[in-house]
């Protein structure tokens, strides 16, 4: 009888099959916890912007995709409601205007277009300079709270370094401009679609 070594293909097949079985098992074991973690993370970000109890629906799943001019398509719009009444919309958007790589933002607006708050979800801006857009590194991102399109006017949604109305992070003008521009674009989109935003049915998984 010839040894295993002379039958290379069955050996490769066996190793591949063993690998597949192992991976299937690990997937079974970890898929639940991973989904749970992702959900918890999404929920934690959400509650940074919306007070717990101010809504009674599930904003994470009450969402639909949107195409907003100048932002990476598609953006995801989440909606918070209480007793069916609109409370807030949360736009999960990505801008590619940053200094190094895409910046993903979560922008919360009241139904009338006032900014509740903005948080940076992901970015690769320069540590020490551009990363001050993160809420736990500086208060810069909080300057948008309570502002709206018209306060200041649309043309002034730019960093002050470029003649706009908002504070610029020093040595991070491009990063600042990208974030301010993205918020302005979401506000413009919200104004144009404000009648429909809470009517569109939530997308199914």
């Amino acid at each position: 009888m010839r040894s295993f070594r002379q039958h290379p293909l069955p050996v490769l097949g066996l190793v591949a099959a063993a690998a597949a079985v192992l991976l299937a098992g690990v997937h079974q074991w970890t898929a639940g916890p991973i989904a749970e973690q992702a959900e918890q993370r999404a929920h934690a970000t959400l509650t940074q912007l919306l007070a717990e109890g101010s809504y009674d629906n599930d904003p994470i799943h009450d969402r639909f995709p949107a195409w907003i001019a100048g932002l990476e398509p598609p953006s995801t719009i989440h909606r918070a409601r209480r007793a069916g009444e609109p409370i807030a919309l949360l736009a999960d958007v990505t801008t590619t205007e940053g200094y190094s790589g895409p910046i993903r933002l979560l922008i919360a607006l009241r139904p009338d277009g006032e900014v509740i708050g903005v948080r940076v979800l992901e970015h690769r801006e320069t540590p020490g300079l551009g990363d001050r857009i993160e809420s736990d590194r500086s208060d810069w991102i909080r300057q948008f709270e309570g502002r709206a399109l018209g306060d200041p006017p649309a043309g002034d949604w730019r960093p002050d370094r470029r003649g706009g109305a908002f504070d610029t992070l020093s040595s991070a003008t491009i990063t600042s401009a990208a974030v301010i521009d993205a918020i302005g674009r979401v506000l413009a989109w919200q104004r144009a679609n404000r009648e429909r935003i809470f009517e569109i049915p939530a997308s199914q998984e």
Partner: peptide, 13 residues
């Protein structure tokens, strides 16, 4: 590596 990646995602997110 895939096994380690999944375990990290599940328990050290």
């Amino acid at each position: 590596v895939t096994v380690v990646d999944r375990i990290l995602a599940a328990f050290f997110y």
